[in-house]
């Protein structure tokens, strides 16, 4: 099918502000949005810049705003985005500083990730075998471990748009994953971090993150559990 692709472009060495550029592209309805971008880069304009790697939604490289919603370009098909003759738009993730075209600076995103101590803390002597964890206990955190840290959620959250320092759903979900891991011993410390002015309480249960998550994680549900935990531990 023939579609018009509009891309919000920005070349740090030439442009003062972002500009829209349109391309007319021949594509198949079963193509991924990423295929369209690659096609443009390879056959129309080699300077078009975006991140990509796995091309099937597991590495988290290509989160961007597609037709106004944050998605992974490699995980949506054209048939779900445009009709014959229609227009498809690409923009970088909102509330992030743009490096070039669709590439954004994720250093702030990962600073938030590091802030929640995203690692297992268990200082008691390690047993000979694995630390046991029941299948039920594992299930509590299982969905949260699916997160690929693409940033679609954090950058879809109005709280982040308003306050770029808000920890954001991705980091908080990581905190959840460790606080609720039965093997972890340092949930208090981590709770103190998320229970800070830039933390958990800026989540107003807006659900944008849930809608944006390419891994279909029910983020708000887990953050609510984290809030309850923070409250009950505090009192």
């Amino acid at each position: 099918m023939n579609i018009t692709v509009k891309i919000k472009r920005f070349d740090p060495e030439k442009d003062d502000a972002a500009r829209w550029e349109s391309y007319s592209v021949e594509a198949d309805k079963m193509d991924r949005a990423l295929d369209v971008l690659m096609d443009i880069k390879w056959h129309h304009d080699g300077s078009l810049t975006f991140r990509k790697s796995c091309a099937h939604g597991v590495c988290g490289s290509d989160a961007m705003k597609i037709n106004g919603e944050n998605k992974l370009a490699c995980s949506v098909l054209l048939q779900d985005l445009v009709k014959e003759g229609g227009t498809l738009t690409f923009e970088p993730l909102p509330a992030a500083s743009v490096i070039k075209d669709l590439v954004v600076d994720q250093s702030g995103f990962f600073e938030k990730y590091r802030a929640v101590m995203p690692w297992l803390i268990n200082d008691s002597p390690a047993p000979e075998k694995e630390r046991y964890q029941s299948a039920e206990d594992h299930e509590i955190i299982e969905e949260a471990t699916k997160c690929i840290l693409c940033g679609a959620c954090t950058h879809s959250c109005p709280s982040t748009w308003a306050d770029p320092d808000y920890l954001g759903p991705a980091a908080l979900l990581k905190a959840y994953r460790y606080v609720f891991d039965t093997r972890d011993e340092e949930s208090e410390e981590r709770l103190k971090i998320v229970d800070s002015p830039n933390g958990l309480w800026k989540c107003y249960t807006i659900f944008n993150c849930v809608q944006a998550c390419p891994k279909e994680i029910d983020i708000t549900r887990w953050l609510s559990a984290l809030k309850r935990k923070a409250v009950t531990t505090r009192f």
């Binding site: 103190k192 800070s196 002015p197 933390g199 409250v231 505090r234």
Partner: peptide
């Protein structure tokens, strides 16, 4: 920016 803040907002939120 993050964490180790003595001030908890849990009470207000609750």
């Amino acid at each position: 920016k993050y964490g180790h803040s003595a001030k908890s907002s849990a009470f207000q939120w609750f």
